[in-house]
Design a protein around this nucleic acid. Structure first.
Length: 290
DNA sequence: AACGCGTGGTC
DNA sequence: TGACCAAGCGT
């Protein structure tokens, strides 16, 4: 008797267990997929959903986003976090509009050359947006591969061989291989999670190298969790929050009120100016870019 | 290659 | 309750 390959088990599990997410609906185009993928970089699904709907209703094509004042784009990004992503997404839209006839490229290398689009996002767009057979490796997938294939408790740092590891798990059939790429991510997001994995409901528990090894604890160094309170990130967030809420340019004292330490405050405001998230007006006030 | 970059939910 | 976590990217 033959055993189903892990990739097939994961695809079949996905058919029954996948979340019903709007960017996975039939007819969602590559632009909508691209917007979702950039928003989902480090931001949870629940917070992305409403903003993604608003963006696609407002900017249904790359050209429409490219034509918008950047301040409006930053404002519409809202509190998704890491607002430089909004800047880069608009810059990518501008390249798509100017150099690709407004059509999101379907080639991984071309996608990867766009601002804010790296290895993960390029492959996600090619696979989810264009139905290509592509290994798509994010943190969830690296964790699944670490356990299922390598018998380790936690993901290793990203490395070039990740793509081959995932490709080796994919079913031979084209359509199933395409679905496998999203399915293995979903498995990592719902079952093979970072905290306590739900091995009892895992479709590949019987062939998982980590389980078969007795679920050994992670041996390497614990990865350090980044601080937030008191960091420049927090200060930048507060400064930008004031500017997003304002209808026009704001005076310096209004920004000074968000943080006591003038040195750190000044450094953060300057970095926002350097990033292009904030501009200074002729009369020395501050605003989102026009 | 390690680090900086936002925000809010969870246990 | 604060540590941990969430579909990365650029430098």
């Amino acid at each position: 008797m033959t055993h189903a390959a892990p990739g097939d088990l994961i695809v079949d599990w996905y058919a029954a267990a996948a979340r019903d997410l709007p960017w996975r609906a039939p007819g969602v185009d590559a632009w909508a997929v691209l917007v979702s993928e950039v928003m989902l970089q480090q931001t949870p699904v629940a917070r992305v959903e409403p903003v993604w709907r608003q963006w696609l209703a407002r900017w249904p094509t790359p050209a429409t986003l490219a034509a918008e004042p950047t301040g409006e784009v930053i404002r519409a990004w809202g509190k998704l976090g890491y607002p430089r992503r909004a800047l880069r997404l608009q810059a990518a839209a501008a390249v798509i509009a100017a150099e690709h006839d407004g059509v999101v490229p379907d080639d991984v290398d071309t996608l990867e050359s766009l601002p804010g689009i790296g290895s993960y996002t390029a492959r996600a767009v090619a696979c989810f947006g264009y139905g290509q057979r592509q290994p798509v490796v994010d943190t969830n997938v690296r964790r699944v591969v670490a356990r299922l294939v390598h018998g380790r408790a936690e993901a290793l740092p990203a490395r070039a061989s990740d793509l081959g590891d995932v490709a080796a798990l994919a079913p031979a059939d084209h359509d199933r291989a395409v679905r496998f790429s999203v399915a293995v991510m979903e498995l990592g997001a719902l079952v093979c999670v970072a905290g306590t994995p739900r091995c009892g409901v895992c479709p590949v528990r019987g062939v998982c190298a980590w389980r078969l090894a007795g679920s050994p604890a992670h041996d390497g160094p614990a990865r350090k969790v980044q601080k937030f309170a008191g960091t420049d990130r927090q200060v930048r967030g507060r400064l930008l929050d004031v500017l997003r809420a304002a209808t026009g340019p704001v005076e310096q004292p209004e920004l000074d009120a968000v943080w006591d330490d003038p040195v750190q405050r000044g450094r953060c405001l300057d970095s926002l100016l350097v990033d292009g998230l904030v501009v200074q007006t002729d009369d020395a006030r501050f605003a989102l870019p026009g």
